[in-house]
């Protein structure tokens, strides 16, 4: 009952928060820009844009871009964007949501009304995930519109089957799961530093370290042991699930990202286990710092 009440309170705050809508608008803008640029590249290759023809990409790469701009590949492209720039926006969202309660002093008002802090944290996480789910659905709708326009303009073949729609929830769920460690790391940092700044700073630092650690992937070539160690980092495991999501909709990410060595990525099972362990660690940190410490005035 308290979880439902707190979720309702968090949802009210979240969907009326202008920053959340601004973040969504920014993401949609970036996604549209990215897909629009791909469409321009195809148009230039096909000589559709004012008769100008530029051929810098190979047939395989061009085919991959065309797949991303048509059905069902557009779904994989949108979910890929969500797991790219979307993670960054999720960090700001989580930092503002939990850190804001500390910074504005509203945390003590809420906890004086509903004192179960663990449930408060869970309700906030669920509200953030629900908000991200709505954002993903809006992004998919926008992606669909872009795919319709691009297919029409560029004359791309589109084949949307019942199977594509059936696997869409799996793709969405996987995209949310990939964002989850970033959300929880940010919440842990916000609870630790009791502010928006600590949440955003910590989340961004984690993202930077994680992406930086991804560049250690080449160390995996040294030996099987170093490969094992590298694959315990978060980034290769995230890559596994992102690649899986792309494949779900007929895309091959290694064609456009030459540094991505699919053969060296962890298995989907390992990826799921490793990401879950990271999530549990971050969730424990957030819980520990929120529940075990005193809550006083605005920070």
């Amino acid at each position: 009952m308290m979880l439902r009440n707190l979720f309702a309170a968090e949802w009210l705050k979240l969907h009326k928060w202008p920053v959340a809508w601004a973040l969504l608008a920014s993401f949609l803008g970036l996604m549209s820009l990215s897909l629009g640029l791909w469409a321009m590249v195809v148009a230039l290759h096909e000589g559709i844009l004012g008769g100008v023809r530029i051929s810098t990409l190979g047939e395989v790469q061009l085919d991959q871009i065309k797949r991303q701009l048509s059905f069902p590949g557009i779904f994989g492209a949108v979910l890929g964007q969500i797991n790219g720039t979307g993670g960054l926006l999720a960090i700001f969202l989580a930092a503002g949501s939990l850190g804001g309660d500390y910074s504005w002093g509203t945390l003590r008002t809420l906890l004086a009304r509903a004192p179960e802090r663990g449930i408060y944290l869970l309700a906030k996480l669920l509200a953030l995930l629900a908000g991200l789910l709505v954002a993903i659905l809006i992004s998919l709708v926008m992606g669909t519109l872009i795919a319709l326009a691009a297919s029409h303009w560029l004359g791309l073949p589109s084949h949307l089957t019942g199977r594509d729609l059936l696997v869409l929830p799996l793709g969405i769920g996987r995209a949310l799961f990939v964002i989850l460690p970033y959300l929880l790391a940010t919440m842990a940092c916000a609870a630790w530093g009791r502010s928006v700044l600590a949440g955003a700073g910590g989340g961004l630092l984690f993202l930077a370290l994680d992406v930086g650690a991804g560049s250690l992937g080449s160390l995996g070539k040294v030996s099987d042991f170093t490969q094992l160690l590298v694959n315990l980092l978060l980034q290769p495991n995230i890559n596994t699930l992102v690649v899986q999501n792309a494949q779900l909709f007929g895309l091959d990410q290694s064609v456009l990202a030459s540094a991505l060595d699919l053969g060296r990525l962890p298995s989907p099972l390992q990826a799921t286990v490793v990401i879950t362990v990271y999530c549990l660690l971050f969730a424990f940190g957030a819980w520990r710092w929120l529940v075990k410490r005193d809550v006083m005035g605005a920070q």
Binding site: L6, K13, K16, W17, G100, W104, A112, R113, G297, A298
Partner: peptide, 27 residues
């Protein structure tokens, strides 16, 4: 019902919605 030190509210919400948040949180 408690009011602790300085009043703390969500600045982007109106007064009514701030109270709605507290109502929802407390059921």
């Amino acid at each position: 019902g408690a009011m602790i030190e300085a009043p703390a509210f969500y600045p982007y919400l109106n007064g009514y919605d701030n109270l709605r948040v507290l109502c929802r949180a407390g059921g």
